[in-house]
């Protein structure tokens, strides 16, 4: 086929064949559900970084609190491999004995390092010894878009580790929770139930974007409106809680200013 017409025909056929193959290829790829693969992959990546928290609150009506009245459950996220865990303040508020169960079933006693009721964030510390802890990868909650996929990993109703999937319903929500106002929350339709509190909300790349915190519901259980504290808020608050001296910083600066002001007032004859 040396004629120009033959060449053109060849071109023609080749290009059409290539197109057809691309089309077929696309169909072939769709036989596998990539959506599922992504979900499975993300869960396997995130699951070891989410812990179950069991607390035994003291019942004040009992004399000297001889028996822990009932146990409550929540979730937590491993922030660093030294055993630093972030959770919600309301999970560990009034807690007597805090026990942290890892994904693989290992249990450790935890102590509260610091807590901020205003932000509903608390930092726990466990001593896992030689047991390896896998910290979560932090993402950027400012880059979340409504409609994006999010996965919640937590411990609803104390059942044990559970994955629920949904989308970002809205960002930047302010809600009133008890006496405080929680700002800039992520709203999601992934099922968030009691016990999911303190658990991880991750994006489809497996990066932490929020900490599941609350839900809006007439029944007290999930109706598809859950809220998470954005991870950027956690990033802002957590270091201050982990490094305890930071909370004295304000007092130190304040006392320096007061000291300086007093000295100025005491010094007579100085023109001001």
């Amino acid at each position: 086929m040396d004629t120009p017409f033959g060449k053109a025909l060849c071109h023609h056929l080749l290009i059409i064949a290539a197109c057809f193959m691309v089309w077929i290829g696309a169909h072939e790829a769709f036989a596998l559900i990539s959506e599922e693969e992504n979900t499975i992959e993300v869960f396997e990546k995130v699951a070891p970084s989410v812990v179950n928290i069991t607390t035994a609150p003291c019942d004040p009506e009992y004399f000297f609190c001889p028996l822990p009245s009932s146990s409550m459950s929540g979730s937590g996220i491993i922030l660093r491999d030294d055993g630093t865990i972030v959770t919600n303040h309301h999970v560990v508020a009034e807690a007597e004995n805090i026990e942290v169960a890892l994904y693989d079933g290992h249990r450790f006693a935890a102590s509260i390092l610091a807590t901020s009721p205003r932000h509903d964030i608390a930092i726990l510390r466990i001593d896992a010894g030689a047991h390896p802890l896998i910290p979560i990868v932090l993402g950027d909650s400012d880059k979340l878009e409504v409609g994006g996929k999010v996965l919640a990993v937590g411990n609803p109703f104390g059942l044990g580790q559970t994955l629920t999937v949904g989308t970002v319903s809205m960002t930047g929500r302010d809600i009133r929770d008890g006496g405080r106002v929680l700002r800039n929350l992520i709203q999601t339709d992934a099922s968030i139930n009691p016990g999911n509190s303190g658990g991880a909300l991750v994006n489809s790349r497996g990066e932490l974007v929020g900490m599941n915190t609350a839900m809006l519901s007439p029944t007290g259980t999930s109706v598809g409106i859950g809220f998470a504290i954005p991870v950027n808020q956690v990033k802002k608050v957590a270091p201050g809680l982990i490094h305890g001296w930071v909370k004295w910083l304000g007092w130190i600066l304040g006392s320096i200013v007061v000291y300086w002001a007093l000295r100025r007032m005491r010094r007579p004859g100085t023109p001001s």
Partner: peptide, 26 residues
């Protein structure tokens, strides 16, 4: 002829992807 076939190819691929993209695989 080549231009023709290219145009046809482009048309076909757009049509193909459009029908695929209308609904996600899920």
């Amino acid at each position: 002829k080549t231009v023709c076939s290219l145009l046809l190819a482009v048309f076909l691929s757009i049509w193909g992807t459009a029908s695929v993209e209308a609904l996600t695989e899920d």
